[in-house]
Design a protein around this nucleic acid. Structure first.
Lengths: 186, 186
DNA sequence: GTCTATAGACTGATAGAC
DNA sequence: GTCTATCAGTCTATAGAC
């Protein structure tokens, strides 16, 4: 595999489990099997790694949303798939999605990375707004009435539920916190 | 003021703005006006500081909930006050509440601190469950039907909304994400 | 593109004087 | 309870050989 990709994979795992500031180039080097200094060839400073991580994550997430759009029919189906994305990202409660992890540690990041992070939030709520609207129209959801506000609330719910699950090292808090949300999907 | 208290104050500010691992004994020493080594007299190792921080926070939060109980009447009033607590903790969007901040960086903490953190989550949802139940009974809220699940969802919403606001350095995402919640309170 | 070697700064923590 | 002095360990980052 591509060394750059292997580094991003290792860094993503570490960032999601322990936070971006809690892993070092030494950890990455050990994990990937090269020397610390070699990492600087791919990511000259750690900020470059942060940006690379968020950039790849945003692209992947956008793909995932497009995939949901093309394989699910009703608004409710799409929202269930969206919920499942956040749920599986937790694994057994040992890691956050990259976005939550980086939102939490945002102080380490420079402008370009922060911009990507906020772009992600905007893209997510835009997609959610449209999908909730669709669900209202096709009658597959109930309990939503203001798609834009509902979208923001949904994103906050997913991120907060992840945080609680991570704190407890268990999926249970995530499932409990999103139970009412799932109940709105026919 | 008590040196120990001054240290806790400084550490809490730093933890909420930048995360628990992102400030050092050197930062604290500069801020409080003593030498690094002196801090170890009050908190021998940094884990002691983490525990002291969470311990004080839990006690304060419990006080705040008791205060809400004694000054607010209806369930809706209490939930509005609860929401306001999380909103003002954000300041201008520059800091998280300590619980969100520490949930995010939980990997640094030892068992006693983690236990307190989970206790906080349990106490919060227990209080919310009871208040939502009251709101249903007194007719001051609408849109809630399963108090316990609603309580978990409410806590996740507050924490997630804080995270989004912090990422954007603005109160706006918090307000948007909690708009629907506030609409349920008569 | 990867290596060895090293720089320079900072970390939490300790010993022991006052 | 606070200080000076210092430790061993870590961190990101760089220079230069191969």
């Amino acid at each position: 595999m591509d060394t750059r990709t292997a580094l991003l994979d290792s860094a993503e795992r570490a960032a999601r489990q322990r936070g971006f500031d809690a892993f070092s180039y030494a950890d990455l080097a050990r994990d990937v099997g090269i020397r610390k200094a070699s990492i600087h060839h791919h990511f000259p400073v750690k900020a470059d790694l942060a940006f690379g991580l968020i950039e790849r994550y945003c692209a992947r997430f956008a793909d995932a949303l497009r995939d949901i759009d093309s394989t699910s029919q009703t608004g409710a189906e799409k929202l269930r798939a969206y919920h499942q994305t956040y749920r599986s990202a937790l694994a057994d409660g040992s890691q956050l999605c990259l976005c939550v992890s980086m939102s939490a540690g945002r102080d380490s990041f420079a402008e370009p990375a922060l911009e990507q992070l906020n772009q992600f939030h905007e893209d997510s709520t835009a997609w959610l707004t449209q999908v909730i609207q669709q669900g209202i129209t096709d009658g597959s959801v109930s309990g939503f009435s203001a798609p834009e506000a509902d979208a923001q609330a949904t994103l906050a719910l997913m991120e907060g539920a992840q945080l609680m699950a991570r704190a407890a090292s268990s999926l249970t808090p995530f499932d409990k916190a999103t139970e009412v949300f799932l109940g709105k999907l026919a």
